[in-house]
Each structure stands twice: as C-alpha cells, then as structure tokens.
Nucleic acid binder design. Structure first.
Lengths: 340, 340
DNA sequence: TTGTAGGCGTTATCAC
DNA sequence: GTGATAACGCCTACAA
C-alpha cells in the first residue's frame, strides 16, 4: 500500500492538514515543520494521489487533448509543443483519439470532463454547430488548434492564416517563373482548412493575373495515397491543361504526388515542381527535399496550453476569445525549380 | 455544476447506490429500475466522475504510457495498437514523455502511479537495475514494449526477436547476391536493441561464411542525421572496404543513408542497396521505397494492453512473466537490387 | 432488489 | 502556524 498523507503526517508528528499545506502552500508553514515533513515524505517516498487531489480540489492538473487520428504526421509536432508547455506548468496530458468520428469526438469531451481535466485542446477538425450542446455542457475551457470554429459557442483557436499561406505559395511559384500551377487541395467533410487553402490559391492566381482553371485542381484527404491519386487524375489531362508546378495541401500528399510523377517518368523538380504544406520532419528527409510552408506546430501547441491555463484561473473576457493566427514560413528546399 | 450520482438518484427516485450498481453491475438491478435510472442519466447527461470512481474503487480505467520521445516515428504506430485495445476495454491512456531522460522516466512511474493507473506501458528504453526501486515501489503492473529488462524485478516484454530479424536481413541480402554488406547499427546509452541487431548481423555473416569487418560498421542514434553521418564515415573508406549493400537499424537512418549516398553521386539501389528497419509508414512513401523489416507495432501495443488488463485482475504467475517475441516480417520494396 | 453508512486521499474552512 | 472536520463523488459491504 502506498503511503498516504496521513502516514506522512504521523511520521512527521503533525496533522494531515499541515502536510497538505507543506505541499501546496509551503509559505504558510513553519520552516522547521516543513523540514520535518519533507524528510518524512522523502523517506516514505510519498507520492500524493492526483486522483484524490482532483476530487477534493475540483481540478486535476490534467489537460485533455482530442486528436482526430494518432497517425496523422503532424500530431507528434503539435504534441511536442503541448508537452513542453504543460510540463512547464506541471500539467499532465490525457490523450483522446476521435478516429475521425464526430461521435467519438463528442464522447471525448464527455470522458475528458469526467477526468476533471482543467482544459481541452481540440485539434484539426472543424467545430460545427452540433458541438454546441456538448461544449455548453462540459463546463471547462476549450481551445482549438489547427482548425477553427463554426459553432455558436465562442471558441478561441490557434492556427495559421491558411489563405495567406497558400497565397504565399503561389507567389513563390510565380516568382520562380511558374504560371501554370495546379493544385492538390484538401477535402474532408468536416474540414474548412482545405477550402481556405484553395481560396488562397485562387487569390494568388488572381493577384498575378493568372486565370483559375478548375481542371487544374484535384482533391484529396491529405494522405499519401490521396496525393498519388489526385496527381494521377491531373496527369490524365496534362496534354490539355498543362502545368509546370503543383502545390498541395499537405506534405504527405506532396510525397504521393511526387511518387506518382516519378512512376510516370516525370522528374521532380526538373520536369515538374511540387510544393508541400506543413513542413513535417519527413520533408527534409526525402529526395528531393520538399519545398514547403512551415506551420509553427510547436508554438501552436504551447500557446494553446498557455491559453488554457490562463483561462482556468481567470475566465477570459469575450475580447480575448477568438482566432489567433501564428506566422507561417516558407521553406525553400529542392522540390521547386526556377523556369525561365 | 455537473450532475452527480445523487442528482440522478433523486431524479430516478432511487438511492445513489442503485445508480452506482446500474452503472457497474446492471445485472444486480431490477430491469424497470434500471430503465428509470438510465433515462434519468440520459436526461441529465450524466457523466460519472472518473476521478471519484478511481479514488473509491482504487482503480481508474486508465493506463499509463511512458515513451522516450514523442517525435520518434514509431510512436504513432505503437500507440495505434495501444489505443485500439484499450478502447476495447474502456480504458483511457495517460501519456508521459520521458524525453530520453532516465530521471524523467522514474518520475513518470511516480506520477502515473499517482493517477492510479491500472498499469504502465514502458517503451523502447532498456530497463536497468536502477529502475528496481521505483518498480518495487509503484505497486502496479508494468509491461515493456520494444525493449527488454535488465533489472532484477521480473518484467514482461513484447518485442520482436531482434537478432533473428537482422539475421534475416543479412540472409535476404545474401540471397540477392550481396557479400559485402555494411551496417549502420543503433547505439544509445540505454539501449540494448542496437546491440542485438548488430549481433544478428554478425550471426548472419558468420552463417554465410562472410568475414565480419569492423570497418564496415558504423553507429548512429536511430535518427535521420545519424544515418547520414554514419554513411558518410562509411563512404570515406569505401575504397578500402567496399560494400554493395548497407543494412540499418532504423528506417529513419536508412533514409539518412540514402540521402547521403545521393549527395555523393551514388544511386540507390543501382549502385548500393539499402535496407531499413521498422517499416514505418514513410517507408512506402519515399523513392526508392524502402525494403525493410516490419515490426508488428500494432500487435505489440495491443498485446501489451491485454497483458496489463489481465495482470490487473489477476496477478500473473511467474511463468507468465517474460519476453514475448512477436513475428517480424521482411518487406520487399525497391531499395535493394539483385547483383550477379 | 434496494438502501444505509463508511471510506477512498485530498483540500479547505474553521477554530484555536 | 497548526489541527479538527467536513466535503469532493463514487463504490461497496452490510443490512433490510
């Protein structure tokens, strides 16, 4: 049996209350007593029960994280930031994988709230109005990362300016001499990000006086195979609608696209240039290294945690709630070439 | 304020105990009562407090997972299996990243035990004797994955037969006509896996009557850059100790090695063949696709969870404790070619 | 089958 | 500065 607070109290010749204070408000206890208590804790290798503490104090030093799928490559990067920040505040993280299901996501909120988490980070999926009831019910701070809200409940989100990011991609490609630019966009039923990036693409074209051509756009669900297949469709009509560069909505799709191009005898970037999106660790591990736009995953994770912790101690004012756009960055590597 | 068990009880006109039973032992309660209770729970959208339950029942439907680093590519795959199985048993997962530090790992055990987790999955790092005290102290089942124990406390582990796996790699390369086989082995201060794979390499060579040559072996810490640098060192002496194939201790190092080869004007596999290890998702996304040995990450994760759950309900007999070796599989793709 | 009562390990509010 | 004492929300004998 593990030692409890009472065991420590007895050993130190004080009451449980004092041990508790020694733990949480050491300034309120006599230095000598404190010393005794600490020694006792040390000797019994006392580890306070987070569970009991949570029950009593109605908070649990735990954050909940809801991700759509653990195998999404960006997860590790986002988590890195979350972990770094939460550790700094002595918080633990409870992970919940919604497996791309809305019901599972709802359930995630419920379950996590059952664990008295002091906040929930929700990732990547669009929050629609059907989340409102559950959002209302779990009465704890929620923050969004890599996505945004279309629900009634005001929610703050940390993400990049998707439109602007893809605009920058187009601008970059144009600056490298490309005018015939295809796109492999992202599309998921509960995803607004894909649309935003597409919008950025269109804005970019418009800005540079390039006509938007539907036949140059294909969609995929962000994964490798989707990128491959989308490229295949693009390739089928390359005679009629040629392109010298392709921008994609994810690094993974970019890899798929490149593979498809290779399989059809095209070299990247010599024949066709490809741009990724995300700047995941793999982007620099492949040949050609991916030219891509970097999302500040770590920072987003950190900011989300900080926001949550702030929100837990002091309800945020309406003006503090909203979308926080963090800066993205274009990373030049090898998958795009300049054409005359 | 969230509804408590008492609120539900009142609404259903029963006692809290009955609600509790309705939740945990529905077979013990009258069907009609059960119905009433369930309706009440539904209406109040009652979510039992996992915290309180854990305190009272001294278990928490939570598993702890200690990983050395969240950014290790295999993590997602392992977690996938863990999540799948734990979900099946209604367990949640508390994640702890030890950041490759032994102290943090110790702390992980402590903290997780403070959360009353019903078991801990420890990953990837060698468990040495200095873990014994903490292992003894946290009095909960611990299971190892992708590693093994060198501690006194008997521990069960799920992993593959590393020696055999690397032996198979060598056998495969030999069957493809290779005799001059270099290796980029893994080395970490708290890692035995690297040694085992190296051993498999040596056994393989011996078995096929190939002389082991130290100059053909380099070491790295499993990451991309390590693979790159190791290959660079190998290349520096390729005149004196030539090789036609390289096997590596991780897919990531294989990618680094390939990149290094490319940078030095070698083509893979035309000039030199490269083998990975792990079969991570990226292995099939790069060009050339990696020929590699697949670790059954999902199964390992699942088995670990099942073992933990079994152990929680019934202390395992000494004979059940030990190393469980799951089958690996050689995946043939494009990074190795046959030579005459 | 159901209810009562005590306890799980803390924290928080009082007195002292 | 310290010590009782009452929660916190649930589970589990035990009794009815």
């Amino acid at each position: 049996m593990r030692a409890t607070i009472r065991d420590v109290a007895k050993a130190a010749g004080v009451s449980a209350a004092t041990v508790s204070r020694a733990l949480n408000r050491p300034d309120l206890v006599d230095p000598e007593t404190l010393e005794r208590v600490r020694k006792a804790m040390e000797e019994m290798s006392y580890q306070p029960s987070a569970i009991a503490r949570g029950l009593s104090a109605r908070r649990s030093d735990t954050l909940g994280l809801i991700v759509p799928g653990i195998t999404d490559f960006f997860f590790n990067e986002l988590y890195k930031g979350i972990d770094r920040a939460s550790q700094q505040y002595g918080m633990k993280v409870l992970l919940y994988d919604s497996e791309h299901s809305r019901e599972r996501a709802f359930e995630g909120f419920s379950i996590l709230s059952g664990y008295q988490v002091s906040g929930i980070i929700f990732t990547s999926k669009l929050v629609t109005e059907d989340y409102d009831p559950i959002l209302q019910r779990v009465n704890i701070p929620v923050v969004l990362t890599l996505t945004q809200s279309a629900a009634k409940t005001p929610l703050t989100a940390f993400r990049i300016d998707e439109v602007r990011a893809m605009f920058d991609v187009v601008a970059y490609l144009v600056s490298r001499g490309h005018r015939q630019i295809a796109m492999i966009a992202g599309k998921l039923w509960d995803d607004r990000t894909g649309e935003l990036r597409l919008e950025g693409y269109r804005e970019g074209l418009r800005h540079f006086g390039i006509e938007y051509c539907e036949a140059r756009v294909e969609f995929g669900q962000y994964r490798f195979d989707d990128g491959y297949q989308a490229m295949q469709r693009l390739l089928e009509r390359i005679r009629d609608v040629p392109f010298t560069a392709v921008c994609t909505a994810s690094d993974e799709m970019a890899l798929g696209a490149i593979r498809c191009l290779n399989d059809h005898g095209y070299r990247v970037p010599d024949d066709i240039s490809v741009m990724g999106f995300d700047d995941l660790p793999i982007a620099r591990m492949v040949t050609p290294r991916l030219t891509t736009v970097a999302q500040p995953f770590h920072e987003i994770g950190e900011e989300a945690v900080k926001w949550l912790i702030r929100a837990a101690s002091q309800p945020p004012s309406p003006s503090e709630i909203g979308d926080y756009l963090l800066p993205h960055r274009l990373v030049e590597r090898e998958s795009v070439r300049s054409i005359s």
